[in-house]
């Protein structure tokens, strides 16, 4: 099978067979934690120390 000949549905089926639900949850949870810390966290200490990053990355934060 060449890389060009499968479809998005095939990929989803393959992933279903390959990834355990707990692994998927783990990956998702980790991603959510990063998003929250970098973009949303308003707690003053964390907020203040990420301040330069948020300005430089153009993140709508404060």
């Amino acid at each position: 099978m060449t890389p060009e000949s499968d479809t998005v549905a095939d990929r989803i089926d393959t992933a279903r067979a390959e990834i355990a639900p707990t692994t998927a949850l783990g990956i998702f949870g980790f991603g959510a934690a990063i998003t929250f810390t970098l973009l949303l966290l308003q707690e003053p200490l964390a907020h203040e120390s990420l301040h330069n990053f948020r300005h430089a990355a153009g993140i709508v934060c404060h």
């Binding site: 990063i34 120390s49 990420l50 301040h51 990053f53």
Partner: peptide, 13 residues
């Protein structure tokens, strides 16, 4: 500290 955390933030991003 701000500078260091921001560099780490950039890497994590």
């Amino acid at each position: 500290t701000t500078a260091l955390v921001s560099v780490g933030g950039g890497l994590l991003w």
